[in-house]
Computed example of a mutant assay.
Amino acid sequence: MTKRAFIPALSCAIFLTAATTPLAHAGEKTWNDAGSITRDALVIAAFGVRLAQSDWDGTLQAGGSLVAAAGVTAGLKQAFPERRPDGSDNKGFPSGHTSVSFAAAATLQNRYGWKVGLPAQALAAFVGLSRVEARKHHVHDVLVGAAIGEASGFLITRRASDRVQVFPWADAGGGGVAMTMRF
């Protein structure tokens, strides 16, 4: 899948998310479900684009970004317990949905540029909004989650370069990695 093919696919994901979620009169469960679906779509996109392009280095970077965001978020939830607005538990700070969504969006933007990153960032912002509307988080939980995700995505992910390509290979006699470079 090329970047040109990915942009329409991401646009379709945005349209389907908006069209299938009647948010004008949505309740907390609808907002919660819409945010979870959008978060999952962003994570799938962060890995799917790289896998479709056999971008193994980018796949590892996406994984590192998402694991770092989730890990920092989990640590902060333990260190600073905060009651959720709906009263369900004391794991409100920071928003894990938001941190993972922004990590996926930032890694897409940092790896492939603003044409891919801008729609992904908009979807991540929607996830943050959905967490507040679902009464799972306060605004500050979402803002800190967004900062964690952005930081992990931009610190761990590098820009894709078509000048250097790495190809893993294997056959019955062994395997290895081939690299090509354009000057």
Rank of each mutant, 00 (worst) to 15 (best):
T2Y: 03
K3L: 11
R4D: 13
A9S: 09
T17N: 12
A18D: 10
P22N: 11
A24G: 15
T30L: 14
W31D: 01
I37A: 13
R39L: 13
R39K: 15
A41W: 01
A41G: 05
V43H: 00
I44S: 12
G48Q: 08
V49D: 03
R50G: 09
A52P: 02
W56S: 04
L60S: 08
Q61Y: 04
A62W: 01
A62Q: 04
V67L: 15
A68P: 01
A70V: 03
G71V: 09
T73P: 01
L76D: 04
L76C: 01
F80T: 14
F80G: 05
P81G: 07
R83F: 03
R83K: 15
R84W: 07
N90W: 14
V100T: 15
A105H: 01
A105C: 07
A106N: 02
T107A: 14
L108Y: 05
V116L: 09
A120I: 01
Q121M: 12
L123A: 14
A124T: 05
A125L: 13
A125E: 07
V127G: 07
E133G: 01
A134C: 06
H137R: 03
H138T: 11
H138Y: 15
A147L: 10
A147Y: 02
G149W: 00
G153F: 06
L155K: 10
R159G: 01
A160T: 12
S161C: 00
S161E: 06
R163Y: 09
A172I: 09
A172K: 14
T180M: 13
R182N: 12
F183C: 02
